[in-house]
Design a protein around this nucleic acid. Structure first.
Lengths: 120, 120
DNA sequence: ACGTCATATGCCGGTCACTGCATATACCGC
DNA sequence: GCGGTATATGCAGTGACCGGCATATGACGT
């Protein structure tokens, strides 16, 4: 996992939003669809792209695929995700996404990450 | 100049090397060619790409074009360039470039940036 | 005005990434 | 096994970028 791969993931707004969401904890595809209001194929393909670059990992939980940031946490990635919130102009959408994330996950047990009762 | 533009510049190794060099001060195209051992067209096009994205600026000095990081310094960009040196694995090349930069500029007056006596 | 050096631009073919649509796979409950 | 839900994959089209080659522009010295 090299520097270039990290930046390749970061240089697309959709991917950036996904990573921003994942940094606060794992999510399944349907949650991402829900939060980002994007269709399944688009999300799936972006996730695949980032998985190929080693930035995210997937784990099956029952019928859901749960994605999270890769285990060998790339400090460069985390550092960049951290400052997304205070990037002028852009920040609104990233914060909004996180609020929506909370709302969507709120419908689950509080001690998530992602129960098998995922109610997508 | 938005976040995405910054990352678009950073996600190519050649561009990354150029930005890494420019962060220590302005350079003309021939110096970049010299340091990176790349041909003129390639460098010129990368510079154009980054100029269009607002990441670098160009100023004519006699027959040379001197490029530097954009004046409205994007903190996100600077932050990322700063940690290039200690990115494991990659660091070697970036440090080597900077050493070569010093060598190449050493042949000029010490109070550069870039004199009109640019000896490319 | 001319030749030369430094740099930029145009065009082309190739590859890569993104989209949309259709279809396949995997798991679940029955 | 079947139907349904969640997710992945394949394919065709489009656009972005990349490399190479040729050529254009701009400044300088003479």
């Amino acid at each position: 996992m090299d520097v270039i791969s990290v930046y390749k993931c970061l240089c697309d707004r959709q991917r950036l939003r996904i990573l921003n969401l994942l940094k606060d904890g794992p999510l399944c595809v349907c949650h991402l669809m829900d939060i980002l209001e994007a269709d399944q194929v688009k999300i799936s393909k972006q996730l695949r792209y980032m998985k190929d670059l080693g930035m995210v990992e997937a784990e099956r939980q029952a019928q859901w695929m749960v994605y999270r940031l890769a285990d060998d946490e790339e400090p460069l990635l985390l550092e960049n995700l951290k400052c997304l919130q205070d990037c002028k102009g852009e920040s609104t959408i990233f914060r909004k996404d996180l609020r929506k994330r909370a709302r969507v996950l709120g419908r689950l047990q509080p001690d998530s990450p992602i129960k098998s009762t995922c109610d997508c």
